[in-house]
């Protein structure tokens, strides 16, 4: 086993995959915590799916899909963020529409592009073993940016997540902070896309913080534990997918979901014991 692990890590693609998993876990752990606390899981799912439009457009234009995804993802994040804030009713309907339109655009652009396009599935379902050098640099940049911005505005993000009205009365720039947050979700989506795919990003954003929040009552502690859990799930899922020759993104999500189930049971059990 140890032998085979050593062999495994001698492969360049495996080392890249591990680094990618760690970098994406940092971004997901920190931003996912804000997603969970602000209850914007649906909006995050919308951003993730709309990003597919960017992948398609980039293919059509013959540029790197990551560039297209960044543009679409940020546009979707800001658009949906504004809708969420400014529409008084049924923001979720509009977000749902934008979600589907983004995907539809992606599919049409890909239809229109000539040539071989088999690896497009990897953007939907992830393909951590195929990350490029450029991908790794983008992941590093996004992880660093997320940690920096959340670190700088930590107390302000905590305040708007807890009680937005009060934060507004204190004249905190609530709208600007909110848009900064959704923009960071957009960037995180693009890097997480390589690991678990656009369709399953929601799970990687929400499951680790949700587990951490079952046991911890401090926002930065949750971010830290969520990052650690995310690394654990990514690495475990990756190894399992390698040994059983299954899709890595899906394995990562199943490992995470299994851990969530166990954590919920542990918590229920603990509460029963305490009483």
């Amino acid at each position: 086993m140890i032998d085979s692990l050593t062999t495994l890590f001698s492969y360049d693609f495996m080392r890249s995959a591990m680094v990618a998993g760690i970098l994406v876990s940092v971004a997901c752990g920190v931003i996912g915590t804000l997603v969970v606390l602000n209850r914007i899981v649906f909006l995050s799912g919308g951003i993730a799916h709309a990003a597919y439009g960017g992948v398609g457009l980039a293919y059509y234009l013959g540029v790197d899909p990551v560039i297209g995804a960044v543009v679409f993802s940020l546009a979707a994040a800001l658009g949906m963020g504004v809708v969420q804030r400014k529409t008084r009713q049924r923001a979720d309907t509009l977000i749902g529409v934008m979600w589907a339109v983004g995907m539809a655009l992606g599919i049409i652009f890909i239809n229109l592009s000539p040539g071989y396009k088999a690896d497009l599935m990897s953007y939907l379902f992830g393909s951590i073993l195929a990350v490029s050098r450029l991908d790794l640099w983008v992941m590093l940049a996004v992880a660093a940016l997320v940690v920096l911005l959340v670190g700088l505005f930590y107390k302000d993000f905590l305040a708007i997540s807890f009680d937005e009205i009060f934060a507004r009365v204190r004249n905190l720039p609530v709208d600007a902070l909110y848009l900064m947050m959704v923009a960071m979700i957009g960037l995180t989506v693009v890097v997480a896309m390589r690991v678990v795919g656009l369709i399953m990003i929601i799970a990687l954003l929400t499951i680790p913080p949700a587990i951490a929040n079952l046991f911890l009552k401090g926002m930065w502690k949750i971010m830290l534990m969520a990052t650690g859990l995310s690394v654990l799930f990514t690495v475990t899922g990756l190894l399992l997918s390698y040994y059983f020759n299954l899709t890595s993104g899906a394995m990562i999500i199943l490992v995470a979901a299994m851990a969530y189930l166990i954590a919920l049971l542990v918590r229920v059990f603990c509460q029963k014991c305490c009483e």
Partner: peptide, 30 residues
């Protein structure tokens, strides 16, 4: 401003100290 007590998110990770300190926030503390 003292808002009405509503159904809170019982798992929200903020301590009493964290919440009272939010009263010290403002544009100038960014």
């Amino acid at each position: 401003y003292i808002p009405q007590l509503q159904d809170t998110d019982y798992d929200f990770p903020a301590s009493v100290w964290d919440v009272v300190r939010m009263g010290r926030l403002g544009k100038e503390t960014l």
